[in-house]
């Protein structure tokens, strides 16, 4: 159980990216009527940005 929780917290920035940042990006774009590039839906675009951002945070240990 302890190892599972350690892993959950280790990967938390990635989960945060897809669980919170992705829908936040999508809903903000929808609010301001912005179109996602390459014909993507705003949700798909949010997932790409949020997932990638969270993943780099797991690797680098910094959001920016």
């Amino acid at each position: 159980m302890e190892n599972v929780l350690k892993q959950v917290f280790y990967w938390m920035p990635f989960f945060f990216g897809i669980g919170f940042i992705a829908p936040l990006i999508a809903q903000t774009m929808n609010l301001w009527h912005w179109q996602a590039p390459f014909g993507l839906s705003t949700t798909a675009f949010g997932l790409i940005i949020g997932g990638a951002w969270g993943l780099q945070t797991v690797i680098r240990g910094r959001w920016v």
């Binding site: 959950v8 917290f9 938390m12 989960f15 945060f16 669980g19 919170f20 936040l24 809903q27 903000t28």
Partner: peptide, 28 residues
Amino acid sequence: MLLQLFFMAVLFTMSWNGYAIEAALLWW
């Protein structure tokens, strides 16, 4: 740990149900 997991659960649940902006402005 429990409070942090609860915080994340609330943010994720609200966000994927269409209330990400509300979650961001009221808690995050």
